[in-house]
C-alpha cells in the first residue's frame, strides 16, 4: 500500500477534564476526498488546525506525506499544504489586488524582495492565472479585494490555497458565503483535483447531503471519529444520536448516499436535523 498522506495516531487536544479531541486516529491516502461532519464544538476546526501544523496536539503523533510533523519539519511540510480557514471577523482593510492575494499562496512569495527579483515571474503569473481560472475569478484579477462580495472573496481565498498545487488541501467550511451554484462547482472542482492530480482533500462541512455524491468518505467527528463511512456505507442511527443527541431525526437521500439511514429511504432529502 502506498504511504498515507495523513496519518494521525491517538491525537488528543485540550485538558483532561474538557478534551476537545481524544484518541483520534485516522489515515487518509493520496487522491482521497474526505468530508468531516460533526456538531458545533466537536473539534472539527481544531483537527484541521492540528493537521495544518498551526497548533500542537497535547497527545499523539502526526505524519504528513510519510514524515513526522513537528516544530523542525513544520515549515517544510507546509509547502505541500493548502489551508482555508473560516473567517471569524472581517478581513483587514488592506489595499490588495485579487492577484496579489492569490500570489501570497505561492511558496516563492515569502522570500525577500531582492530574491523576488530573480524568481520566474512568468511561471508565477501563469500559476496565479490558472488558480483564478479554477475558481472563475480571472476577470476580477485586477480588482480591489476589499470591493468583492463575500462569496467572491471566498473563491479568491480558495485560489490562494490552490495556487501552490498542494498535495493536501484542508478546507474548513469552504462553501460558507457561496451560492448553491458555486457550492456545486466547488465540490466538482475538488473531486476533479483529487482524481486528476491525486490531491488529498479534507473538508469540514455541515451539510452531508450536499457533499455526499462527491466525497469518497465521511468521518463523523465528535471529540474522536465515531464512524468513518466509505462510499456505499450507511452511518448507523446510534452514531448520529451519539454525535448530535437523541433528538436527531435522520432522513435519507438515495441509495448511494454516504451516511443515510436505511430506515428512512422514502425521503428525498439527506439532511440530518437536530
Amino acid at each position: 500500500m502506498t504511504q498515507p498522506v495523513v496519518h494521525l495516531s491517538h491525537i488528543g487536544f485540550g485538558s483532561d477534564k474538557k478534551p476537545v479531541l481524544e484518541h483520534l486516529s485516522l489515515e487518509v491516502g493520496s487522491g482521497h476526498f474526505m468530508g468531516i461532519i460533526g456538531p458545533n464544538g466537536a473539534g472539527k476546526s481544531t483537527l484541521l488546525s492540528i493537521i495544518a501544523g498551526l497548533i500542537k496536539p497535547s497527545a499523539g503523533h502526526i505524519d504528513l506525506f510519510g514524515k513526522c510533523l513537528n516544530r523542525r519539519t513544520r515549515q517544510k511540510l507546509q509547502r505541500d499544504l493548502g489551508y482555508l480557514h473560516q473567517v471569524q471577523s472581517k478581513l483587514p482593510d488592506i489595499p490588495l489586488r485579487v492577484r496579489d492575494v492569490v500570489a501570497m499562496g505561492l511558496s516563492s512569495y515569502n522570500t525577500s524582495l531582492l530574491q523576488g527579483l530573480f524568481t520566474n515571474k512568468k511561471a508565477d503569473h501563469d500559476k496565479i492565472t490558472h488558480a483564478l481560472d479554477l475558481v472563475e475569478m480571472t476577470t476580477h484579477q485586477d480588482a480591489d479585494f476589499r470591493r468583492l462580495s463575500g462569496g467572491q472573496q471566498q473563491r479568491v481565498r480558495l485560489a490562494r490555497a490552490l495556487v501552490r498545487q498542494p498535495k493536501l488541501l484542508l478546507l474548513d467550511e469552504p462553501s460558507a458565503a457561496l451560492d448553491s451554484r458555486h457550492q456545486e462547482k466547488l465540490y466538482q472542482l475538488l473531486r476533479k483535483l483529487c482524481d486528476e492530480q491525486g490531491m488529498t482533500v479534507l473538508m469540514v462541512e455541515h451539510d452531508i447531503a450536499a457533499i455526499t455524491s462527491y466525497v469518497d468518505s465521511v468521518a463523523c467527528l465528535n471529540k474522536n471519529i465515531h464512524y468513518h463511512a466509505k462510499k456505499g456505507d450507511t452511518i448507523p442511527d446510534e452514531v448520529w444520536r451519539e454525535m448530535y443527541g437523541d433528538h436527531v431525526n435522520i432522513v435519507a437521500h438515495d441509495a448511494s448516499c454516504i451516511g443515510c439511514a436505511p430506515a428512512a429511504k422514502h425521503s428525498s432529502h439527506g439532511h440530518h436535523h437536530d
Partner: peptide, 22 residues
C-alpha cells in the same frame, strides 16, 4: 524591510493562513 516586507504584508492580511503557508 528588504528581507521581510512581503511576509509582514501577508501576515497583516491573514495571520492564520500566513502561518499555515510556512
Amino acid at each position: 524591510l528588504l528581507i521581510w516586507a512581503k511576509s509582514w504584508w501577508s501576515m497583516a492580511f491573514d495571520m492564520v493562513t500566513a502561518k499555515a503557508s510556512g
